[in-house]
Design a binder for these strands. Structure first.
Lengths: 239, 239
DNA sequence: GATAATAACCTGTCATACAGGTTTTGAGGG
DNA sequence: CCCTCAAAACCTGTATGACAGGTTATTATC
């Protein structure tokens, strides 16, 4: 069923790349859905006429990108959409100073102005409650920065989820890692309790607007929130 | 210099994951920049006390995500920001029907409304010329759909580049793969030459607005462009 | 001191082995 | 006939050793 006799013309971009393509191609052509099993490594080894080493490196690569799930004993399965790979790319860009935190915030602002408007229009009651809940937990734990941060992140992810567009969720979640590394800096800049509570109030305003189903108001509050956050980071000297 | 004697407490998420973390950690702690060389596989093998198999799978995984570059004989090096991984994630989402083309277009619209405005404000003369050039090439090759598509894609990527925020470029470029799979459908919907030329005119309007440095006008034209594109896809029955 | 040959090092691929997991099979008992 | 449970078959995770071929460092020669 296959003639893998190294057809001439290819400068051989490596067997592993070929194997990766074969696997993704398999997913595509078989129309596999998340959870569906992939061929075993042995099967792939036979099909491609390469060593198990090559096949394994291909599987492992796809697993690293979270396109497939692997676990001992079981065959690999098609994975649900996951933000793992994107997060790593963004983190890599940050740590190697190819992108700045401020640039990430600009993108976040752009995207979240949209997610918050969509959320106001499309949120279910349950989603609105979850968003409000995150804001409330920020206030309740406000003496514990770490907790506030996690609820803040959950807040933004919940809004993205309520936009009912998983691509937005994907991107917003991918940025969460960066947020975890810089959040505290912004928090510290808001030195007084008053300033910190005001920032929390901003979140509650957003949640309210979403609950009321007012996309314009929600976007307005979100813009304000981001402008203040960026200002806080700039005050702290973040490039 | 290392005590990798399997400290208890970890439920062992796999040696490869550990190795991946060790490598990214190395990049971080050494402050490596793109092009800088990483330790050899043998060195990593010794440092982590694992087999070369494990280390290789870790390197290969990072290479698949384009965080590092590998080539035979040479040591791996830190990679420049690349859209490879993101593209694969998006494609995976599309082929497994976890996200729809329309959802991608909504995200593109959101982002490109911003990139076009930024481009109008920050573009260099050279960038403005490149953008205009892509639009012109669309018109010149307009009997060759494939060519028009490639210049269309280049057009949008050039605008993202002119925004001077690599994160936008990253995302826009990641979507190019999806565009390549659906573009023709939208083109065919514009059955008459007139409709097709009108669509090209839309691109020229955008390029002009960027050249003039008018962000508002540019965003307006971009919005119009996307609305028409989405309409074309919907007319063609794309979910 | 420049150049070319050589050695040392490095990655790419293969074969094999074995330790656990997981699913399948099948025998035996109710 | 169905249920239970243990053995078998299959699968992935990791280790080891080997060798081809590419790249860099070394060294000998002119």
């Amino acid at each position: 069923m296959q003639e893998q006799t190294d057809p001439p013309g290819e400068p051989s971009p490596g067997l592993v790349s070929t194997a990766i393509q074969a696997i993704t191609q398999h997913i595509r052509s078989e129309g596999l859905a998340p959870g569906d099993p992939l061929p075993s490594e042995a099967a792939m080894t036979r099909q491609l006429n390469v060593s198990r080493t090559v096949v394994r490196e291909a599987f492992r690569s796809l697993s690293a990108m979270r396109l497939i799930d692997m676990s001992a004993g079981r065959r690999a399965t098609v994975a649900k959409l996951d933000t793992g790979a994107m997060s790593m790319v963004i983190e890599h860009g940050i740590t190697t100073q190819q992108i700045s935190v401020q640039q990430v915030y600009d993108v976040r602002r752009t995207i979240e102005m949209r997610t918050v408007a969509l959320a106001a229009l499309r949120r279910t009651d349950q989603e609105a409650a979850a968003i409000a809940q995150s804001a409330r937990l920020m206030r309740e734990n406000f003496t514990n920065p770490e907790a506030v941060m996690e609820h803040d992140i959950a807040f933004h992810e919940a809004i993205a989820a309520a936009s009912h567009n998983p691509v937005f969720s994907l991107i917003v979640t991918a940025f969460s890692g960066v947020t975890r590394r810089t959040w505290v800096i912004g928090w510290r800049t808001r030195s007084s309790d008053e300033a910190q509570l005001k920032m929390i109030k901003g979140h509650e305003d957003i949640a309210d607007a979403i609950l009321k189903g007012d996309p314009r108001l929600a976007a307005e509050h979100m813009a304000e929130h981001f402008d203040k956050s960026v200002k806080a980071l700039l005050d702290a000297g973040i490039a």
